[in-house]
């Protein structure tokens, strides 16, 4: 299983903002777990989708060299449920970016209708938490992730 909760970016302005979409399918197993008779996307996974959209934006700002960790959900306000067949649009904007981390504000919509407003804070963990040792390799932006990203960077058209 891949822990990836966005399908593609539709806009990406380095160090500023990014927009990603996620098509919700009834084929996703987890949708049958929360309320089996009424499948919805759990709010926690909507926050995760925003964290991935924004986390990649924050990671790219430092050329994916930092280990970018979601450190805090400052606020998450939800307005409506999201159901299979719908497309989530995540828009993340960097408010602050420093050596130590970043803060972002995000909006989530379906068909231009507000689903959620989310504020997140990310930590560059090697720059924080003095005294704690983390593995040297980047376990956030792994080789596997970077390879996947590269296929999108080239436009996604891979010859078969």
């Amino acid at each position: 299983m891949r822990w990836i909760w966005i399908d593609k970016f539709t806009q990406f302005t380095p160090r500023q903002s990014a927009t990603a979409i996620k098509n919700v399918s009834l084929a996703e197993e987890h949708l049958h777990d929360l309320h089996p008779a009424y499948p919805i996307v759990p709010h926690s996974l909507i926050i995760e989708g925003m964290a991935q959209t924004a986390g990649i934006l924050v990671g790219e700002a430092r050329n994916f060299e930092e280990k970018v960790i979601l450190a805090k959900v400052g606020r998450a306000t939800f307005h409506r449920l999201v159901r299979p067949g719908q497309t989530l649009t995540y828009h993340a904007k960097i408010d602050q970016l420093s050596e130590q981390g970043a803060s972002i504000t995000g909006t989530v919509t379906v068909d231009s209708q507000a689903v959620a407003e989310i504020e997140l804070m990310f930590s560059h963990i090697d720059q924080n938490l003095a005294g704690l040792k983390f593995p040297e390799h980047n376990f956030v932006f792994t080789d596997q992730f970077m390879n996947l990203l590269n296929t999108y960077r080239t436009g996604g058209d891979v010859a078969i």
Partner: peptide
């Protein structure tokens, strides 16, 4: 500990200042 970074970010925004590490 992680709240301190959050506080720094929010103070920078609220007062329009830069707080060096």
């Amino acid at each position: 500990s992680i709240d301190f970074l959050d506080i720094v970010f929010r103070l920078e925004k609220a007062f329009g200042i830069k707080i060096p590490r």
